[in-house]
Amino acid sequence: MLKVEGINVYYDKIHAIKDVSFQVKEGEIVALIGANGAGKTTTLHTVTGLIRPKSGAITYFPEREANLYDLTKMPPHKMVEMGLAHVPEGRRIFLQMTVLENLEMGAFCKGKATKEDLDRVFARFPRLQERKKQVAGTLSGGEQQMLAMGRALMSHPKLLMLDEPSMGLSPILVEQIFDIIVELHRSGTTILLVEQNAEMALQIADRAYVLESGRVVMEGVGSELAASEEIRKAYLGG
């Protein structure tokens, strides 16, 4: 449903993303893994239009629709309507707004946040319901990640893009977040996961791409990559 072909991204003169191609098929969990600074976040920002590529193509084609969308031309605020939701690195929730208001912003493209949508998110993240009147800045790191994901779910995404959901969380919370990702996937959401935590990401990914200095250096089935000698040495600590 998403096809990225040979994109090149520059920050001024720095060639940050070099000829990166990958695709996500409907119903998959695809992981982009790699070290800090490999270009994972930049790649994701390019997909959602926050950065524009100098060359290359990004197309989005939800299966039940006949349409093909050129994402390199689409303004970022239009993408949510198309079913693309991006949970950015560092959560980026609205810290001075309440939990409820954050969720309402997630449903902005739909007009009003419906009660069913709120209930659906609260059922998945009961902690958010308990704290719905609280200002988001007072939440713990794990709760903030849940809010960021809940906020994205308010728009009924077809493709959910998660950028480093495990960042800064304790191992138990990371487990929890990954369990939720798997559940979301089972309930029919396609997932593009950007992770530094390669071990966790490869456990749940159908396929994965390894980025190094802005290039895709390896790709394959999640479990096969997890077993490969090179990946073990470089990313899994032995």
Binding site: R92, F108, S155
Partner: peptide, 24 residues
């Protein structure tokens, strides 16, 4: 109001607001 809340969202984080579908 919806527009008023969108303003507060933009005031905090324009990129995140765009990702919500808000026309900044």
């Amino acid at each position: 109001t919806r527009t008023g809340k969108a303003m507060r969202a933009c005031s905090e984080d324009k990129e995140a607001a765009q990702l919500m579908g808000i026309n900044v």
